[in-house]
Design a protein around this nucleic acid. Structure first.
Lengths: 333, 333
DNA sequence: CTGAAAGCGCTAACAG
DNA sequence: CTGTTAGCGCTTTCAG
């Protein structure tokens, strides 16, 4: 299967120079006389020569491709991050190998290893949980790995996130300030640090600050799916909740629709606020109030950080926290 | 930057065999005595040897990675396809290099070339339009390329789609049968064959079958964006449309919300039906009726087709049309 | 069933 | 400014 027949050797011969010279002009090395450069360029054009990146990768030990591990591209939160990553990657002439892990621990380590075997220059990991095994794998390799929109409670790898705890704390505080005594916390699996450790912490802190006792019954641990949200109304109502903060937009949309369908008016009788500010927040009715996260930027900054790491450039911040905000729309009073 | 230090040579020496033998066990070649196989495997495990896929790619001329070109992963239509592609790719041990083209002609050919230079074994292209230049590039390479959810009116490359014309025709017919005399066709750019050629054809045919004259004023050419949809109500209303078929779910959601916000009841006073059946259709209110497309499957089938092409296996169908359906939800009567 | 040897196409010293 | 020469790590005949 001769995908490509013309090699650097062909153009060298045709241009009557050495392959080293061809290599130099291809790589933009300045130490080439303009005349020979032109000659080589002409031959390259004439022969339609296209450098073989695989050979180049083998010789130079750089592939200009980075691996991206993501739970599911189909989820707008992650696809937004992925878009930011790819754009910056393209800007720096990298390509992305994108793999879906379904947050499956085994798949994650397996995929990490195939990425490593493909000699990617770096990896961006998005995932809900860094298991011990995964953390070990991370440590074993010298290939730089940065986490995007994903927290590791042991903070070993560089990462870019927002301050989830503070964001949740702030939104819960607002809810309480508006008179909600019973605010539900509807989240994804609590075993994920981002939920169980950070967001929940913010939730509890807000309660504490307001002198409201924590009530286990108001914590709803889910799978973050839209469908699940739609089914929550009975439980939420019987728990006496008058508001909910959800950790995922689809989940929040489900909650809201479930409420509305059951005749509970949002936000009049039940307020809901979500966490990711994907474009879904604008499409549902009422529009959802949300913590705003610079999703695209989280990906972009993570990729930018990775480029520095890959070039052994100094980085001043290994744990960057991007600013978040609170966007009031129609699902809160 | 020694990403990896242990090579096939190391394990060969340590296991006291030749590197050819190591290569054989790594590649599952059966011509190896069980005893030596075990010995080699043990050493591999002990040394934590991981084959270098780049070297392997150079030697074997196969990279087990395929390129995927997509307008924007952030769009649920495409991310759904991408997910199908990646799943099947993983099943066949391929990885995906994912690139966003923004439907930019130049970017598309440029990205195609970098993919080719990276020696991908195959490419899946998703895009709204195959320009002449792109078509030329497609022809020039021996690397198999299949189109997923994308039509080329010259049908040169293998592709997997649904019958867009028939689907639109059917949904417009239904709308007409329910008494709508003036059905708007709200689409993305008409220069894209999928819109201007296929879907519009179906629209016109339905009109013709019903003896309704075609009216230019009912064609709304847009950029397929949600926002654009929200702004369409005045134009739609003044054109006397009582229903609309939209070629994109986000666009349709925009139209619907725009109508609702203007006090036009959907579906009572205005019916809308969309085309992609992404999960968004279930999240908005009223839920959107839609042509159903097996999005995931389109990607999956395209990838499966590509695997056959990459292995020079015979394929009986180069242009596969997957079944579509019509899902009645709440935005139509 | 196993080994020797010749590349795959390119980069990177090292000379000159 | 340019050429020579080793490899990069692995697959793949070809022998035996």
């Amino acid at each position: 299967m001769d995908k490509q027949t013309v090699t650097i050797y062909d153009v060298a011969r045709e241009a009557e120079v050495s392959m080293a010279t061809v290599s130099r002009v291809v790589n933009g090395n300045t130490n080439v006389k303009p005349a020979t450069r032109k000659k080589v360029l002409d031959v390259i054009d004439k022969l339609d020569y296209r450098p073989n990146a695989v050979a180049r990768g083998l010789a130079s030990k750089k592939t200009t491709t980075v691996g991206v591990i993501v739970p599911d591209v189909t989820n707008m939160y992650f696809s937004s991050l992925a878009r930011g990553i790819d754009d910056i990657a393209a800007m720096y002439k990298y390509n992305i190998i994108l793999t879906n892990s379904d947050s499956d621990d085994e798949k994650e380590v397996q995929v990490l290893n195939t990425l490593l075997s493909k000699q990617v220059d770096g990896i961006i990991f998005m995932g809900n949980e860094i298991t011990d095994q995964l953390r070990e794998e991370f440590k074993r390799t010298k290939t730089p790995i940065v986490l995007a929109g994903s927290v590791d409670d042991q903070n070993i790898n560089p990462s870019v996130n927002i301050n989830y705890a503070a964001a949740v704390q702030e939104e819960v505080k607002n809810l309480i300030d508006r008179g909600n005594k019973r605010v539900a916390f509807v989240c994804g699996p609590l075993k994920y640090a981002i939920n169980g450790k950070y967001r929940l912490k913010g939730y509890k802190q807000a309660l504490k600050d307001a002198g409201i006792p924590f009530d286990e019954k108001l914590i709803f641990e889910t799978d973050s799916k839209y469908k699940t949200g739609t089914l929550l109304q009975p439980a939420l109502s019987s728990a006496g909740a008058t508001a909910a903060v959800a950790t995922d937009d689809e989940l929040a949309a489900g909650i809201m629709n479930g409420m509305t369908d059951a005749g509970v008016l949002v936000p009049k009788n039940f307020e809901v606020i979500t966490s990711n500010d994907t474009k879904l927040t604008e499409m549902v009715r009422p529009k959802m109030s949300s913590i705003t996260q610079p999703l695209y930027d989280i990906g972009a900054v993570a990729m930018r950080l990775l480029t520095k790491l890959m070039n052994d450039e100094p980085v001043n911040e290994k744990e960057v926290l991007l600013p978040y905000g609170l966007m009031k729309r129609e699902s809160t009073k």
